Simulated assay, not measured.
Amino acid sequence: MNRTRVKICGITRLEDALAAVSSGADALGFVFYAKSPRAIEPEAAAAIIRQLPAFVTTTGLFVNADAAYIDLVIKQTRIDLLQFHGDETPDFCNSFSRPYIKALRMKPGLDLDVESHKYAEGQAILLDAYRPGVPGGTGEVFDWDLIPKIHPSPIILAGGLTCENVAQAVSAVQPFAIDVSGGVEQSKGIKDAVKIDKFINEVTRAN
C-alpha cells in the first residue's frame, strides 16, 4: 500500500506547527470557524504559515463561510488547500482559487458513493463521525466498515483517532491520509508534541 499521509489540524501556535513538521506531518490545518475552540484569526495563521518550511501543505477549514471571508483568508494567509465541513455545494467549493477537500459526516443513510461523485472535482473526501449539530471535531470514532473497499475518491480518515487506535485505522481502512486534532492535544487548541510524535510513528509503523 502507499504511505498514509498525516494532517495535524487545529493549529493555533507556532510551536505546535513546528513540532508537527519536525515529527513528519505532511499537512497542517487551521480552523477558520468562530464556534470552534480551535479557531484562529487569519492574521495569526498567516504569521505561523510564514515561518513554515517548504513542502508542508497548509489547509484552511471552513463551515458555511461567506465567499468573501474565504477569499480574505486566502489573500492574507496564502493557504494551499481549502477544507469544507458545512453544507457547501460543489459549485461553491469549486469557486475559489485553491483546490479543496470536502468533509462528509458518516450519518445513517448517507450514500457515500453518491456524495463523493458530487464532489469529484475535489482533491479528496474526508470522512468524519456524525453528531447532530456538530460539523466536526467530535472526538468520536465511527464504524470504519461503512467505508467501501473500492472508492472513487482518495479517502482522508478523521474522527476520534489517537495514538492508541490509529495503526488499527490505517490497517483497516488504508486511507490516503489521516486527519487528527483532539487526539494529539493537551487541551483544546493546544497540541502535545510527544503525542504528535507518537501518533505519526504509529502511522509509519502501520504503513
Rank of each mutant, 00 (worst) to 15 (best):
M1V: 13
R3L: 13
R5F: 13
R5V: 08
V6L: 04
T12L: 00
T12K: 04
R13A: 06
R13T: 08
D16N: 09
L18W: 02
A19T: 07
A20P: 09
V21W: 09
S22D: 15
S23N: 12
A27Q: 01
A27N: 01
L28G: 01
G29P: 00
A34W: 06
A34T: 14
S36F: 02
P37M: 05
I40C: 02
P42R: 03
A44R: 14
A47N: 14
I48R: 02
Q51F: 01
P53I: 00
A54M: 13
V56K: 06
T57V: 13
T59I: 11
T59S: 10
T59W: 00
G60A: 00
V63R: 03
N64M: 04
N64L: 07
D66Y: 02
D66A: 09
A68Y: 04
Y69D: 11
Y69S: 04
V73Y: 01
I74D: 08
I74S: 04
K75H: 14
K75V: 04
Q76W: 11
T77K: 05
L81M: 10
Q83P: 01
H85P: 08
H85E: 00
G86H: 01
T89P: 00
P90V: 04
P90L: 10
P90Q: 08
F92V: 07
C93I: 14
F96G: 08
P99C: 11
I101N: 05
K102G: 06
A103H: 01
M106T: 05
K107Q: 14
P108E: 11
P108C: 04
L110H: 09
D111R: 01
L112R: 07
E115N: 09
S116W: 06
K118A: 10
K118E: 02
G122A: 12
G122F: 09
Q123N: 09
I125V: 15
L127F: 12
A129S: 13
Y130Q: 06
P132Q: 11
G133K: 06
G136N: 00
D143M: 09
W144I: 09
D145L: 14
P148A: 03
K149T: 15
K149V: 08
K149D: 15
H151I: 09
H151K: 08
P152C: 10
P152Y: 06
I156D: 03
L157V: 08
A158K: 06
A158M: 08
G160R: 07
L161P: 10
T162M: 06
V166K: 08
V166P: 09
V166W: 02
Q168S: 13
A169P: 04
A169F: 00
A169G: 06
V170S: 11
S171G: 14
A172C: 13
V173P: 12
Q174P: 04
Q174R: 15
P175C: 12
P175D: 13
V180Q: 05
V180C: 01
S181M: 04
G182D: 05
G183N: 11
V184D: 10
E185D: 11
Q186G: 02
K188E: 14
D192C: 15
I196F: 07
D197A: 15
K198R: 15
K198L: 14
F199E: 00
N201P: 07
T204K: 15
R205Y: 13
A206T: 11
A206W: 10
